[in-house]
């Protein structure tokens, strides 16, 4: 079914097997993904491309445990996540997943540092330890001088850096980025992609990035194309 992908793929950090995803809109059933298989090795920087509505974000949500497949299995770091309870899935996300959104999704009422600290509230770390880790994460993304600033006082690129700092502060197994440069100008996009690339190369972070931008996808170590619920190595014509 996804022969082009399976050829030469090695069993890795993420294993998606025979995944279907069907959305119901009233009486109508919309098949977004059909029998999809995918392996993502540890340390890979994978770009997912495809037209709007092709199921890229849906696949990302399934891998991140934000949604459940209608059929099939998903394993991340040898743990099946498609059959976990809501509570266990939430705990799993907190431990394994870092999410970067297109529109940053920062809490406007919290400073940059407090935003980055948010995922750490779910840990048993002390206040000072949480603060220290948030400061380190902001330092990694080059925003140590903007810690006390609120999102509205930061540029789009800076807000996305805060978003990335929030995603990496718990040292997650997997970094999932949904159009991370979709709302940014070319310069800021370049900076964000540099940062993601550095996280992948220097810190070994496994990254899955959904993007429409071919320039962004070029930064990844592998690019897959998703169309009509199927993956391929080449864009469909």
């Amino acid at each position: 079914m996804n022969e082009t992908v399976e050829d030469g793929a090695v069993s890795g950090l993420v294993a998606v097997r025979g995944v279907d995803k069907v959305f119901k809109r009233g009486s109508e059933e919309i098949h977004v993904l059909g029998g999809l298989d995918l392996d993502i090795p540890e340390g890979e920087f994978l770009a997912l491309m495809g037209p709007s509505g092709s199921g890229k974000s849906t696949l990302l949500n399934l891998i991140g445990g934000l949604d459940r497949p209608s059929q099939g299995t998903i394993e991340v770091a040898d743990e099946r996540i498609d059959n976990l309870s809501n509570r266990k899935l939430a705990a799993w996300r907190a431990r394994h997943i870092g999410l970067v959104f297109q529109f940053y999704n920062l809490m406007p009422v919290l400073s940059a540092r407090r935003n980055v600290e948010l995922p750490l509230l779910l840990t048993h770390l002390s206040r000072s330890e949480r603060r220290k880790r948030a400061e380190i994460a902001l330092d990694i993304v080059g925003l140590s001088h903007r810690m006390s600033h609120f999102p509205r006082t930061l540029s789009g690129g800076e807000q996305q850096r805060v978003g990335i700092a929030r995603a990496i502060v718990t040292d997650p197994t997997l970094l999932l980025c949904d159009e991370p440069t979709g709302d940014l100008d070319r310069t800021s996009s370049g900076e964000i992609l540099d940062l993601l690339q550095a996280l992948n190369r220097e810190q070994g972070k496994t990254i899955v990035m959904v993007t429409h931008d071919m320039h962004a996808a070029e930064r990844a170590s592998r690019t897959l194309f998703l169309d009509k619920g199927r993956l391929s190595l080449e864009p469909s014509v």
Partner: peptide, 16 residues
């Protein structure tokens, strides 16, 4: 709604 969804996405439980 969006912010609450983000909280859940980063690991807050339904009860949380």
């Amino acid at each position: 709604t969006n912010e609450l969804a983000v909280l859940k996405a980063i690991g807050f439980t339904d009860r949380g």
